[in-house]
Structure formats: C-alpha cells, structure tokens
Write a protein that binds this DNA or RNA. Structure first.
Lengths: 169, 169
DNA sequence: AGGTGATATTTTAAACTTGAAGCATCAGCT
DNA sequence: AGCTGATGCTTCAAGTTTAAAATATCACCT
C-alpha cells in the first residue's frame, strides 16, 4: 500500500505541515478580521453585540423556514453556533431582557425550553440582517461566484463535524 | 462602463449576496470548529489556553527569526493577533506569572516594554508547537498542497487588512 | 413505585475580549 | 522650559466564553 509512492508525493507530504500551518494562520486572521469588522459595524450602527446578532440570526432561520420547528432549544442553538452550552444561556438572558426573544415551555419535556424571536425581535433582526448582508457582500466582493463556490468546496473538505470524533461508536 | 453587462453577470450579482453570506457562515463555522479542537487538545494535553498559545507563538517567531528585533511591544502583539490592546495585557500578565515571558524596558522609550519568551518559555513552546503542528496537519489532511495553495490565494483576495479602512488620511 | 443512567439547562469560577477612560511618556513646537 | 497632540500601555466595566459542577427532568428497567 505505501510502497507505491511517487517522488513528488513524498516531497509534498514533507512540505505539508508548514503549508497547512500557514494556511491555518491565514484562515484564522481572515476570519478574525471579518468578525472584527462586523462587530464594529453592528456596535456603531445598531448598538448590538456580534454574539447577540449570531443568536438572532440562528433564530431567524426557523421563523422563515416552515420545514423547521417553531423555536429552538438551547442545545440546538449551542450546537449550531459551535459554542458552549452555558454560553448561550447568558446571551439569551440579555435578549430576553431586551424583549427580543422569549422562552416557551416545550410540550412533553419540562427540561427543555423553546427559544424564539418575539415580534419585536423579528422586526429588529430584519433591519440588522439587511445591513449585515450588505457588509458581508462588500467584504467578500473580491471573490466572484466561482471563487466563492471553490472556497465553499475547500471548506467543506475540512469537514469540521468529524474533527475530534475519532472515538465514535 | 456599466452598460456592457452579460445576462449571466447580472444573474450572478443578483445571486451574490446570498452566496457570499453562506460562504461567510461556513468560513466562521469551520474556523470555530478548528479553534475548538485545538483549544481542547492544548487544555487536555498541556493545560494551556489557546490565547496563551497564540501569544507564545507570536513571540516564538521573533526568537528564531534573526531579522526581527529582540522582543515585541504590546502594540505589535495586539496588531499581529488582531485583538484589542487591553486584551494582551491580561494574557501577558498570566504568562509572566508562570515564568514563561518577561517584560524588559526598551531603551529610549519608557512607555514601551519589550515582551519576550524566557528560556523556560522557549522550551515550553517548542513542546507545544510540535504537537500543534501535527494537529493542524491532521485537521487539514483532506486538503492536498494544491488545495491549500488555492485556499491561501482565495483568502488573500479577501485582504482583511483593507477591510474597514475607507477613511484613511 | 423506585432506581439508574442519560439528557437539558443553569450556575459558577476563571479566563478572555472589547471599547473607553486614564496615566505616563514622547515628539515637536514656541 | 512650557504646551500640545500623539503614542503605549494599563485599568475598568460589561459582555462573552469555557469547563465543570449542580439541578431538574426524562427514559427505561425491575
């Protein structure tokens, strides 16, 4: 199996670690830069924090998509946003205090509460989302649709969902 | 200028915002997933936080690269890591308390202190870095060198450094 | 019904993060 | 020397984030 190796593939795998490390650093810097820019704009123009926007965006998806349940559980939110469970609690608490989100009991399971945007929350998010979409479009304006598709494919290859899951059943 | 437009380019720019938004969401999820994985491994295997590792990595660069000055200022660190100024203070404080980093006066400017890894810090980082490089290599193992190069190019096109800088002097 | 392990969420402590305010110092000007 | 604006860093309050512990509930088994 490993006896069949071309010279170039050997050289490539030797150069790999450094190249992949550089790629990871650039990926991190680019993402952080975009996040910083979006955070700044949300703060200045709408006085909203980025994490709060992210949560509202997750909740807004299910308001428009009728194939999804009404409301999301805290666990679903934390999995979707890839942040810890306890983290979501605090953010939701603030959004609830601002009247943008509310928690409803879930029928048949008293552990779980279904979180949902209020009417005010939907209206608020619509405003934010329109601006946000424009900002992202501008930030990524150097990528044409082909570039975007290529990058989506490359990112999909990384497949984050299986990263630390060597020990599945 | 804008009169020359093919039908496909019009359709493409109409579809752009949604595509770019999806790309941004995937970029964010992938990056966050990799960060979570690295954070977890650093914690379990070495009892180090990810931000502390990031700072040490920045400082380690200048230990090996002789073309750079001995030590980095707090401002240089914060710019390099794309985090706020005050943030770095706390992380350096903890690394100093652990004896991995020390602050030295900078000749000719009493406002500035040059931050540098101690001997213990260099040794510590060498251990971390070797493992870290392997992890990143494994996480990105689905990308061959060509993929990695393509992705670097696409990320470079985004050019974070110019994102929010429309109002320069 | 009672017991047991799993699941959903909150709480807690410690660390991180930001943006703004504050302090010290510097550079340049008069 | 004194003034002024800029720079480097720290401090501070508020919010975010994590990992772990604590609660509450559920599902299943006996």
């Amino acid at each position: 199996m490993s006896a069949r190796r071309t010279r170039s593939s050997v050289a490539a795998s030797a150069a790999d670690p450094k190249l992949r490390l550089r790629l990871w650093l650039r990926l991190l810097r680019t993402t952080r830069g975009i996040e910083n820019e979006l955070r700044e704009r949300l703060r200045v123009e709408f006085d909203v924090t980025l994490p709060q926007f992210d949560v509202m965006a997750a909740l807004a998806r299910i308001e428009t998509d009728r194939t999804l349940d009404a409301g999301m559980t805290m666990s679903e939110l934390s999995r979707f946003l890839m942040v810890s469970n306890g983290n979501v609690t605090g953010i939701i608490d603030r959004l609830v205090a601002d009247g943008l989100v509310h928690r409803a009991a879930k029928a048949g399971d008293r552990r779980t509460s279904l979180v949902r945007l209020t009417t005010a929350g939907v209206a608020r998010f619509d405003t934010l989302a329109m601006a946000h979409k424009g900002w992202v479009g501008a930030i990524l304006s150097n990528l044409d649709p082909n570039d975007a598709e290529r990058m989506m494919t490359l990112l999909a290859a990384v497949d984050v969902s299986t990263i630390g899951k060597g020990d599945r059943i």
